[in-house]
């Protein structure tokens, strides 16, 4: 038998080596040719890894778009660095409508703290629209011994809250609450994913700031309850919970409430790269609204627990311009919150 080198591997699987070689050759030649001639694609860069975060929304959006327009949207996950790589990738792409981005909800806090976005301006992106607004809440468990907001205010020892990292909303928002209500919330970073929920459930920490839609099982634990609503969206099926806005005081109240409300409201944001072509932005804005108003999309999104409140691209652009204004109140107020939080 001739020495066929690496071809020995596929060939040893079959008694008919000659036929097998032909089949293998034909198959791989076809595959290689197919791989060399990819069809024209539109890319959707997603700021989370496959299967997690807003990837689910991206894939549902792509599926609906394919059904509506026959345009194939290839989902590319860039989940590293909390979505910063996705932003960098999007910022470096052409604005002709062949590349879109879907940004993680936490991107706003990161941008405002200059953790990302040093090389480009927020206002230069083409904001298409946002969907899946969050209902941000402060919840505590039975072990915390906290029943009311007065308990929270009067507690002598810090109230520990599970947080993922110092750049995440569940770390920054408790510090904002401290600033506005004079509480002693102590976010503890380093709890990722399921560990965060378990820490609250087991009583290791007193609670956490989180999205209402993601804590169903936690609220079923005896004694666990919601203490505060951080933004104005109503909580379905819940007894009235006071809002942060109704209790906040101090000179930074308006700016910080605006920040929390905007961050939660804009939800998961679709955007075009900086300097988009007007025609591309108009086309994608129209498609975005067509998709999120699609009955099948809404049914599936609802099944998966996604919020369906939408924000227009214009609203997002206006809000981001207001929040990121270097002479505006938000950045200064946030800076004071973080400085105080680090010192505390």
């Amino acid at each position: 038998m001739r020495d066929w080198g690496v071809l020995t591997l596929p060939c040893i699987l079959s008694p008919s080596a000659k036929a097998d070689r032909r089949a293998v050759l034909g198959l791989f030649t076809g595959l290689a040719l197919a791989g060399c001639m990819p069809p024209r694609e539109t890319h959707l860069i997603v700021g989370s890894s496959a299967g997690g975060g807003n990837d689910d929304l991206a894939r549902l959006f792509a599926k609906t778009l394919l059904r509506q327009t026959s345009e194939r949207l290839t989902v590319e996950n860039e989940g590293k660095a909390g979505g910063k790589l996705a932003l960098d990738h999007l910022a470096a792409s052409p604005g002709d409508g062949t590349t879109l981005g879907l940004l993680a909800p936490s991107f706003l806090y990161r941008m405002l703290q200059k953790e990302v976005g040093a090389s480009w301006s927020l206002s230069s992106f083409g904001w298409i629209g946002g969907v899946s607004a969050e209902r941000r809440v402060l919840m505590v468990n039975a072990g915390s011994g906290i029943r009311t907001l007065d308990d929270l205010r009067n507690r002598k020892t810090p109230v520990t809250l599970a947080a993922s990292s110092v750049a995440s909303p569940n770390y920054i928002e408790p510090l904002i609450i401290n600033q506005l209500l004079g509480t002693r919330l102590k976010p503890v970073p380093g709890y990722s994913g399921g560990a965060r929920t378990l820490a609250v459930m087991s009583g290791e920490v007193d609670g956490m700031v989180t999205g209402f839609d993601s804590i169903g099982p936690l609220l079923e634990s005896p004694g666990s309850h919601l203490l505060l609503r951080l933004n104005s969206l109503e909580l379905p099926g819940q007894a009235p919970v006071p809002t942060l806005a109704s209790l906040a005081k101090g000179p930074d109240a308006a700016a910080l409430l605006d920040l929390i409300e905007t961050s939660a409201r804009i939800g998961q944001v679709f955007a075009l790269p900086p300097g988009p072509k007007t025609e591309a932005l108009a086309r994608w804005t129209q498609r975005f609204h067509a998709v999120i108003e699609d009955p099948d999309f809404r049914r599936e999104a609802s099944q998966r627990g996604m919020g369906l409140e939408a924000t227009t691209g214009r609203e997002i652009a206006t809000a981001l311009a207001r929040l990121s204004n270097p002479t505006g109140p938000t950045l200064k107020a946030l800076s004071r919150v973080m400085t105080k939080g680090r010192a505390g």
Binding site: W4, V6, L25, F28, L31, A32
Partner: peptide
């Protein structure tokens, strides 16, 4: 031949 076919197979895979 094995060089060509091996390279083609691996590239296609």
């Amino acid at each position: 031949w094995p060089t060509f076919l091996g390279a083609l197979a691996c590239a296609a895979a």
